[in-house]
Simulated scan of single mutants.
Amino acid sequence: MPISLDRTERRILEALQQDGRLSNVELAQAVGLSESPCLRRVRGLESEGVIAGYSARVSQRSLGLQVTAFVQVQLEKHDDQKTKAFLEQVAQEQHIIECHAMSGAYDYLLKVVAQSMDHFSEIAMQGILRFPGVKGIESSFSLLTIKHPSPLPIEN
Rank of each mutant, 00 (worst) to 15 (best):
E26T: 08
A56Q: 12
F70L: 14
A56F: 05
I3Y: 08
S140T: 13
P149S: 10
T145G: 07
I128E: 03
R43T: 10
F120E: 00
A69G: 12
N156T: 13
S142I: 08
Q29H: 12
R21Y: 05
S47G: 12
L13G: 03
A52P: 11
P2A: 12
G32V: 05
G133V: 11
L87E: 14
Y108A: 06
F70P: 09
S55K: 06
S139I: 07
I96Q: 01
L144K: 14
D118W: 00
V71C: 10
A28R: 05
I128G: 01
R130V: 03
L45Y: 04
H119L: 00
S103F: 08
K82G: 07
V134D: 06
L45Q: 06
Q94K: 15
T145A: 03
K82W: 06
S150H: 11
V112F: 01
R11L: 13
V50T: 14
K147M: 09
M1E: 06
S103E: 11
G64A: 01
I51M: 11
E9M: 05
G44L: 08
V73D: 03
S62R: 10
L129R: 14
H119Y: 00
Y54P: 13
A30C: 06
S150N: 09
E138N: 12
A114E: 01
E93L: 13
S150L: 09
L45F: 02
C38T: 07
Q29I: 09
S140G: 12
V31M: 05
E48V: 06
F86Y: 12
L129C: 14
L16S: 05
L33M: 11
G32Q: 06
E14Y: 00
L152W: 00
A15C: 05
M117S: 02
G64S: 02
P37R: 11
Y54A: 09
L39Y: 02
I137V: 14
A124W: 00
S116K: 00
V67C: 04
H95Y: 04
H78P: 15
A69E: 07
I123V: 15
S103T: 15
H95V: 00
P132F: 05
R7K: 14
R130E: 09
M125G: 05
R40I: 10
I128N: 02
K111W: 01
L33T: 08
A52L: 14
E155P: 08
R10T: 08
T83H: 03
Q72K: 13
I146R: 06
E155I: 15
R40A: 10
T145L: 02
L110G: 03
H78L: 15
V113F: 00
Y54G: 10
Q29A: 12
L33K: 10
H148P: 01
D107T: 05
I97K: 04
F131A: 03
M1Q: 07
E26K: 14
E46M: 14
L75P: 12
L39W: 08
D79M: 04
D79N: 15
G20H: 03
P149H: 05
E26W: 02
D19M: 07
E88K: 13
R10E: 15
P153K: 13
Q29E: 14
F120A: 00
C99M: 11
P132Q: 10
Q89P: 04
L110D: 03
L13I: 07
V71K: 02
C38K: 04
L75C: 09
L144G: 04
S150K: 12
L16V: 04
V113D: 00
L27R: 04
K147G: 01
